[in-house]
Design a protein around this nucleic acid. Sequence first.
DNA 1: CGCAAAAAGTGAACGTCATTCACTTTACCG
DNA 2: CGGTAAAGTGAATGACGTTCACTTTTTGCG
Lengths: 219, 219
Amino acid sequence: MSNDPSAPLATAAVTPKAAYHHGDLRAQLIAAVRELVETHGPDGFSVAEAARRAGVSSAAPYKHFKDRHEILRGVVSEAMDRLRAAMEEGAAHHPYGSLEAVAAVGLAYVAFAKTEPGVFRLVFGLTEGHENAPDLLAKGEGCFGVVVQAVAACLGLPPGDPDVQRRAYMLWSFVHGHSFLTIDMKHKVASAEINDWDYLMGIGRAILAASRDGAALPR
Amino acid sequence: MSNDPSAPLATAAVTPKAAYHHGDLRAQLIAAVRELVETHGPDGFSVAEAARRAGVSSAAPYKHFKDRHEILRGVVSEAMDRLRAAMEEGAAHHPYGSLEAVAAVGLAYVAFAKTEPGVFRLVFGLTEGHENAPDLLAKGEGCFGVVVQAVAACLGLPPGDPDVQRRAYMLWSFVHGHSFLTIDMKHKVASAEINDWDYLMGIGRAILAASRDGAALPR
DNA sequence: CGCAAAAAGTGAACGTCATTCACTTTACCG
DNA sequence: CGGTAAAGTGAATGACGTTCACTTTTTGCG
């Protein structure tokens, strides 16, 4: 739902429950909050300011969201859709099963973190009201699935293979950590001059190449 | 400063600027905020509640901190001291230059994240008022230095060697990502049954063992 | 077509919070 | 011993989150 980030301004009955008075507020609120999170950090957002930007009263958002947390969850949900799409598109630009495809998935991940650091942090920092949100869990699983699929194709193994799962998790840890350290600038030693593509190709090679001998592989 | 987390309750003139009326409020506020961050998440903390727990009025904290952000920074600073100490202690339990020492540093890192997930997230999620905080940057550098030193000793190279820096950064990315994914439970596939020690030893071996041939090493 | 019910939005209200200010109280130092 | 500066108080201010009683609009249906 709400797959189009830029909602039409005219009187469009997109969904039966979306355009009574305003014109799809829900989506506009999410967009406003996304902007606020990006510019003022994950904490520097307020329902009031989002409502102000959408041109409605500060009570209007509560017709579409139960909490402030639910608005955040909406932003996260939308962001995870975009992240997954970016990862899939990255893989699609390279031959199926190639190491490049794996690296491209990671590159899309890092690029997302660099482009939208505030939202990225929000996605992986949400703790308040998200624990029991099955949709977000499922989307996280979906993102991980993209990695798993690329790794499985590269190794020529089924996605359910535990070795595939383990290597995919390792790659994800690596890319996730690199993304966070990059946007945190808690490194400034090596990361600044790191070429992400070379870095990711190297990591992928190190983790996937060991499949044949298994010597340097953990466990 | 304020190296003792449990401040004495009696009238103790620990520092000339610490025990006029209350009894080292500053430290008690930081402790209270640390608790709040841990139980209610990084956002669910308020100056008022911290002051309440310390038994002072809600205006008292502003005699010790400029902002709420400055309190957070205090918590982060103290946490980074503890993190670094834990990493050093981990390394000290193993022979100097051993692979085990490197893994122990990582294990301490992961353990910290597991023990204090809220504070851990705060440390690496602080974006509001921390950009120009040279002390925090320096402490982050200090933590990274522990990794660098262990890696340098293991490889028999000087800490300034670019190869050491690069490998240390890779290890850090890995451990950082694994820590985050663990506490986020954004994995639930493999991480739950992962034995951290074996995992970290394997990672260390994979990244440091390639020093001799360099075949599977990135770039 | 016409109307009732539900959806969507408003404005005021309440309690909480962050922050400031004028003020008291207390410890220290010359 | 008296002054000064640190440490703490309490009230005030403005913003925010959330609720509530209310209006307005849309829609579904007889």
